Amino acid sequence: MRIKMKLRELAHSRAGDKGDISNISVIAYLEKDYALLEKYLTPERVKAHFVGIAQGEVLRYALPSIGALNFVMQRALGGGVTRSLALDAHGKCLSSAIMTMEIPDDTDPS
């Protein structure tokens, strides 16, 4: 059985926005952990994690030289900053929300 851990144990995150698009970066604390992020943070898993928020396509861009993944979520901000009734129309809290994702600990020998 693999032990699961929260993403926040391996990485930190930042979020930005442009219109109705949320841009979330996930950056590994340690270079050795980037492979785990790349393996388990797929666009499909991120979209499933943000079910009800990410209404459009989720794209992933890998930046291995800095140990980061960048996710671009279409139609994720309720129409955009000037149209959304959300308390966080910019989607800045989405960087905290992605940190709650669980991923298997591939270093667990069992």
Rank of each mutant, 00 (worst) to 15 (best):
T42D: 13
V72H: 05
L30K: 14
R14I: 01
P104M: 07
L85T: 11
C93S: 15
G78V: 05
R75D: 14
K39I: 06
H49R: 08
I103G: 05
D17N: 12
Y61G: 12
G79F: 05
G79P: 03
S95P: 06
I103E: 03
R83C: 12
Y40L: 01
T107G: 09
M101F: 03
K18T: 08
V58C: 15
R83D: 09
L94P: 04
I3G: 10
A86Y: 05
R83M: 11
M73I: 06
S110T: 06
L36S: 14
K32Q: 06
S22K: 04
C93V: 10
L94Y: 08
A86H: 03
L69P: 03
M99Y: 15
R14G: 14
L41K: 01
R8Q: 11
D106W: 01
S96I: 13
K39Q: 15
V46S: 00
E57R: 10
P104H: 05
T42I: 11
E31Y: 06
G80N: 12
Y34V: 00
K92I: 04
I98Q: 11
E9C: 07
I53L: 14
M73C: 13
L7D: 10
N23A: 15
A86S: 15
E31P: 09
F50V: 03
D33R: 06
A28R: 00
G78F: 06
E38G: 01
I24N: 01
Y29G: 02
G56M: 07
F50H: 05
T42W: 09
H12G: 06
S110Y: 07
P104V: 07
D108A: 10
A86P: 00
P43K: 04
I3V: 15
D20C: 03
C93L: 11
E102V: 01
L36Y: 13
Y40T: 00
S25W: 00
E31F: 08
A35C: 01
E38M: 07
D17Y: 02
H90M: 13
L69N: 07
D105S: 08
M99I: 11
R60W: 04
S65G: 07
K18Y: 03
T82A: 15
D17M: 02
R2M: 13
G19L: 10
E44L: 05
